[in-house]
Each structure stands twice: as structure tokens, then as C-alpha cells.
């Protein structure tokens, strides 16, 4: 079963009288277990694509399917339920609720899904320990470094075992050492647990380490294949 399918997806933004075509006729399939990087010049449509894939926005044309379920025609509360149950999100910054600790942030989605406090605490604690945040469970986001905050965000995203984790430039705000470590963490979660990742990045090293690279230009897919088969402009 494919985790994510985009069929002939277009997205136009309307700002006043101006229509901005952000995506045009995009076809994309991310199979379960994929580890896919998405790159391209600024404004090429990476964030737009991730927002459509994550049911944060609706396409102007075309269909988006998550695990075979067509997202078109979902009500807002059905969209919310889908995000809660089947999607994991990691954003570039502002990923965590400032008044919640690392542990509470990590367990949040499980809480929304109605998992009992004892069980979700245990699962969140174990995962935080596994990804190198043992002993930091009770720190608030402002007491964590940028890289540690992103780790907590990744923990939250995968804890509910989603169909796919969508990460919009998860390494953009950290130094290259930390970026490399974060990618290593994602690789490990992908390898050990089979988590499906689709993430955007501007970082060449990060792109090269992906199993597959999707290159966007002017809202279209310009290249889709192995990273080493493509001369990154």
C-alpha cells in the first residue's frame, strides 16, 4: 500500500487579483517505507506540496490519497482526525508547545488519540531515551537546544505510528553537525521501525543521504530518482 499518492495535483494561491501557481500537475507516489528527500529552489513549491499531503490545505486540482484514502471532500474535523491518526509532522521551527515539557509534547498526539496516561508516558519516555534525550523529559522547550527540540518533534511525529512523517526543512535551523545527527536519527527510525519519511531540505548532504530525491522547479517535478543520478544545480 502506498503511503502517499498525489495525482495531477495543482495548487494556485490567490492573493487579491494575482493568481500564484505554486504547484502544477504534480504526480508523486511515496510507498510505505520510503525515505524521500524533496528539494528545489526557494519558492518551487516544497512547503505547498507537504501541506497538501498533510491535509493542512486542499489542492486546486487533482487528488491526494493517504494510504489509499482520498482527502478531497473531508470536513475540517475529518481532516483533523486524519492528521492526528495517520500523519506525523515536523516543522522547521516552532514545533513544540512552550508550556509543555519534552515528555508532554511527545505524548500529546497519543493523548489526543485517547491512549491512557500511563501507557503514553511509558511509550514517550522510552522513545525519548532511545533517541538520546534520556534525562531531559522534564525540560521545557526553552531549556533545550535547537537540535534537541527537533528530536522531541520527531519523537512526537512517530510515536503514534503514522502512515507517513512529513518534515518541512527539519534541519534548516541547526548547524550542519546537528543536521547530520538529526538525519542519522531519521535514518535509524526508518531502518529500525520502517517509518516512512518525506522531507524537504536545502542541505546537499541531507539530499545525498536520501534513498530518493524529488527535485521541484516552478511547481513541477523536474527530477525524481536516486540522488546520485542527478547533478544538483
Amino acid at each position: 500500500m502506498d503511503a502517499l499518492v498525489l495525482e495531477n495535483v495543482s495548487k494556485n494561491y490567490v492573493a487579491g487579483d494575482v493568481v500564484v501557481p505554486a504547484l502544477s500537475g504534480v504526480d508523486l507516489i511515496i510507498p510505505a517505507g520510503g525515505f524521500v528527500a524533496m528539494a528545489g529552489p526557494s519558492g518551487s513549491g516544497k512547503s505547498t506540496l507537504l501541506n497538501l499531503a498533510g491535509a493542512l490545505d486542499v489542492p486546486t486540482e487533482g487528488r491526494v490519497l493517504v494510504e489509499g484514502h482520498d482527502l478531497s471532500g473531508l470536513t475540517t474535523s475529518e481532516q483533523a482526525a486524519l492528521r492526528r491518526d495517520r500523519i506525523g509532522f515536523v516543522f522547521q521551527n516552532y514545533n513544540l508547545v512552550p508550556v509543555l515539557t519534552a515528555l508532554e509534547n511527545a505524548e500529546y498526539v497519543l493523548m489526543l488519540r485517547g491512549v491512557g496516561q500511563k501507557e503514553r508516558r511509558e511509550r514517550a519516555r522510552a522513545l525519548l531515551a532511545e533517541i538520546g534525550l534520556g534525562g531531559m523529559e522534564n525540560r521545557f522547550p526553552r531549556q533545550l537546544s535547537g537540535g534537541q527540540q527537533q528530536r522531541v518533534a520527531i519523537a512526537r511525529a512517530i510515536l503514534a505510528e503514522p502512515a507517513i512523517v512529513l518534515a518541512d526543512e527539519p534541519t534548516a535551523n541547526v548547524d550542519s553537525r546537528t543536521a547530520s545527527d538529526l538525519l542519522a536519527l531519521m535514518e535509524k527510525l526508518h531502518a529500525d521501525r520502517g517509518v516512512t519519511f518525506l522531507f524537504s531540505t536545502h542541505d546537499l548532504d541531507v539530499m545525498r543521504r536520501a534513498g530518493r530525491l524529488v527535485w521541484l522547479r516552478d511547481g513541477r517535478i523536474f527530477y525524481d530518482g536516486k540522488p546520485d543520478g542527478f547533478e544538483i544545480p
Binding site: 498533510g54 493542512l56 475540517t76 474535523s77 483533523a80 482526525a81 486524519l82 492528521r83 492526528r84 491518526d85 500523519i87 509532522f89 516543522f91 516552532y94 514545533n95 513544540l96 508547545v97 512552550p98 500529546y108 498526539v109 489526543l112 512526537r156
Partner: peptide
């Protein structure tokens, strides 16, 4: 607003 947007993005209902 950002906090609320984030929480809604991860599936919290308004």
C-alpha cells in the same frame, strides 16, 4: 496563534 496552529496541525480540534 502559532501554538494553536501547531496543535491543530497535529490533529487537535479547534
Amino acid at each position: 496563534e502559532r501554538e494553536f496552529a501547531l496543535l491543530m496541525a497535529i490533529g487537535t480540534r479547534p
